[in-house]
Design a protein around this nucleic acid. Structure first.
Lengths: 247, 247
DNA sequence: ACCAATTTGTGCGTATGTATG
DNA sequence: TCATACATACGCACAAATTGG
């Protein structure tokens, strides 16, 4: 169309104009927008274009439209909420479905002060620790992994090697608890000697460390997992989506 | 209309029918829906009605519609369950409020094929590139940062150095577009020589790279930012909360 | 309770633009 | 280059909800 208008569709230009007016107070909160017919006349566009623009304002929660009544301005600065596009916890590991965890050691441990602080704010209790190497289907090593399971669920000790799914899912099923929140932290540090040896990488190789705390409704950690990935091959992706009213 | 169909509008009935087919596997994930024209013929409704129905499926993330290509089925059960505890995009950088970006170079660039692929699936266009060093309030270097801004917003070129807030916020305000989604990827690689020099770290130092693509409603990247952090001091945390859905 | 005007919702037809393969 | 398929945009008509008389 015309280059002066930025090359964007007319309904988007119109939506932007109306939003500017709302934010400037031309259409005050609590009042109503001009009718579709008035907007059609003012901007010289069809009703279809006006309605597409008003749909944008409605989705972004600037206005509330009611048949027979009009378009009420409900906010001059709607706040956004972003949603992690993830349907289940197992998608936290995008690779989880195609990997297996080869455990090399399972034991009850009592962490020292530094580790206890990392595990969470629980009192100085014992944890069931499982460590091993996560491998792709072909056998290639992905990470050195250490998992701490709260002693409350220590009955799993004998079965850790042959669970069909993720450990957190089994704990939810067996013990009737629920993972309400996951706190994840990504950092980087060189591999510890034993981790390097287990993965078969040179000592001192740089690793990306992912720590996840699986928390219940009171923020108590049920499981804490730590994985060290060779930095050269590590990649982690996520998508965050702005929320709006569904249909 | 007819009582057998529930008295709901035709486009809602059609949307319901299509969703049922997707969930039943009639239209498998990864495949495409029939074209608008085919749906028009099958259901005996106008293209307008078909498009209203498809808009519902698109908003509910059942399909992804692409001009010229079709409506790809992307999920048979699109409800997200975990929510990233984040109120605004600026919280992506937990430090954003207390940092500043010292730009050392701003220029229009035409990326090569490899970079263009990383920036997104836009045609081979030019981007406004800004690069510099992000620093804490005290002046300590945090990261080497390179930002690519779509040429549509190149008018910002002269102001990049003195924006009050994040670039994406200014673009939303000035151009009336909206960041609907952010795709983030974390990986690790050694610093490039010029980045190492700019940060004052030894050549070959390992870096954690964060790439973020800020996408509009059609998944077109508006801004792409890349930051390289010295691995030794990098840490990134996030929390994901389970959502209780009524039904 | 009813009517009439207003306003948005639904639905159809048509034409042209633009990205894709 | 060309056909296909979705995006944008114009027009019209009638339905349904709201409002005020």
């Amino acid at each position: 169309m015309d280059s002066a208008s930025g090359g964007r569709p007319r309904y988007q230009q119109l939506a932007r104009t109306l939003i500017e007016r709302i934010e400037a107070g031309v259409y005050p909160v609590g009042g109503t927008l001009p009718t579709e017919q008035e907007l059609t006349a003012e901007f010289g566009v069809s009703r279809h274009t006006v309605r597409e623009a008003l749909r944008i304002l409605s989705l972004q929660r600037y206005v509330h439209r009611r048949q027979g009544s009009g378009s009420e301005v409900i906010s001059a600065a709607p706040q956004a909420v972003y949603r992690h596009a993830m349907r289940s916890l197992s998608e936290l590991f995008e690779y989880a479905a195609d990997t297996r965890l080869d455990l090399r050691r399972v034991a009850m441990t009592e962490p020292d002060a530094a580790l206890a602080a990392e595990l969470g704010r629980m009192p100085g209790r014992r944890w069931l620790m499982a460590e091993g190497v996560r491998r792709a289907r072909g056998g290639d090593a992905i990470s050195f992994t250490r998992i701490f399971i709260h002693e409350e669920f220590a009955a799993l000790e004998g079965e850790l090697g042959r669970l069909p799914g993720p450990i957190y899912a089994e704990i939810e099923r067996r013990f009737g608890v629920r993972v309400e929140e996951v706190a994840q932290e990504i950092s980087a540090e060189p591999f510890a000697p034993e981790a390097a040896a287990a993965l078969g990488v040179a000592p001192g190789t740089m690793a990306v460390r992912m720590m996840r705390r699986y928390l219940d409704e009171a923020d108590r950690p049920l499981i804490v997992s730590m994985s060290w990935h060779p930095a050269e091959t590590f990649s982690y992706g996520m998508r965050l989506r702005r929320e709006d009213r569904a249909g």
